[in-house]
Computed example of a mutant assay.
Amino acid sequence: MKPIAIFNTDTIPDALARSHGQYPDMFIKSLLAVNAGLQFARFDVNKQQYPTSLQDFSGVLITGSQSAAYDRDEWITQLKERIKTMASNEIPIVGICFGHQIIHQALGGEVAKAPGGWCVGVHHNQLTPVATEFGAPGDSFALISSHQDQVVKLAPNAQILASTSNCPVAMTSVGDNILTFQGHPEFTRDYAKALMDKRRDAIGEPVYQAGVDSLDEPLHEMQVLQWMLNVFNRGQ
């Protein structure tokens, strides 16, 4: 497989990064556990760093971020334009959390604050009837979530592949080359706990405690990581 281009959209504070790495580090470690032969290239798009060409890559992975997809920062506006171009050129793209949201925002959808507030901890994603490539309707997979925004209007031609009780648009596809997830297959339980601790006051005690308690539940991140790689295999 050609290298995967990781579009990094955040810089984790040193206090967290020393123990857990930056988001590209988390994705690289997780994906190498699925396929040890993978190669990657990192581009800090939040600092407006981009490859000169995507011809030598199997596709683009857009990470999570503390920023909002509807913010008007210059780098966010530029990323949206890049997403439009990549989509029109049928470049394989996978978006996670903020990546999921900004793909829809860029392509004509809408992102807003979730009506229920923060969504943290382990959440169960239930497949919809159109997600036949991934399993039977009603099958579920568990991922860690950490967000207060969510997609409230799909991009044209997008399909909802899975929903959670808190997030109706939890997994989507746009055509054959774009796959997105609101949940985090790259997060470890330790990092999720550290992030919840950091945001405890903002999250609120009942949601925080339920999120922490849920971290004992089984996860299906390896399954999701393989689904992500299946998209990049199309870019060979």
Rank of each mutant, 00 (worst) to 15 (best):
R42Y: 01
L195H: 13
P92F: 03
T164R: 07
G108T: 02
V169M: 10
S173P: 14
F98Y: 11
F187I: 03
D73A: 08
V231H: 02
T128L: 07
Q159P: 01
Q78P: 04
E186D: 07
E221C: 14
Q49R: 15
P137Y: 05
I4W: 04
K47R: 13
S19I: 12
S19K: 08
P129R: 08
I6C: 04
V120K: 02
F141C: 05
A194K: 04
A136L: 10
Q55L: 12
I76R: 07
G59N: 08
Y208H: 10
D197P: 15
E186H: 01
V224D: 12
E90C: 15
V60P: 13
A112K: 07
A112P: 04
H124V: 11
T128S: 15
P129H: 00
H123G: 07
I76F: 05
I178Y: 12
D25C: 01
D149G: 03
K198L: 15
R82A: 09
P24E: 06
H104L: 00
S140D: 08
W75H: 00
Y50V: 03
A112I: 02
A158M: 05
I96D: 04
S65G: 02
L79W: 12
L31D: 01
I144S: 09
G117K: 00
A5K: 06
G108W: 05
R18K: 14
A155T: 10
Q78C: 14
F40S: 04
D71W: 14
R82P: 09
T85A: 14
L54I: 11
P13T: 03
D139M: 12
G138W: 11
P115Y: 00
D139R: 02
T180P: 05
Q39T: 12
A69K: 09
Q66H: 14
S88T: 14
T128F: 01
A192S: 12
K80G: 15
S67I: 13
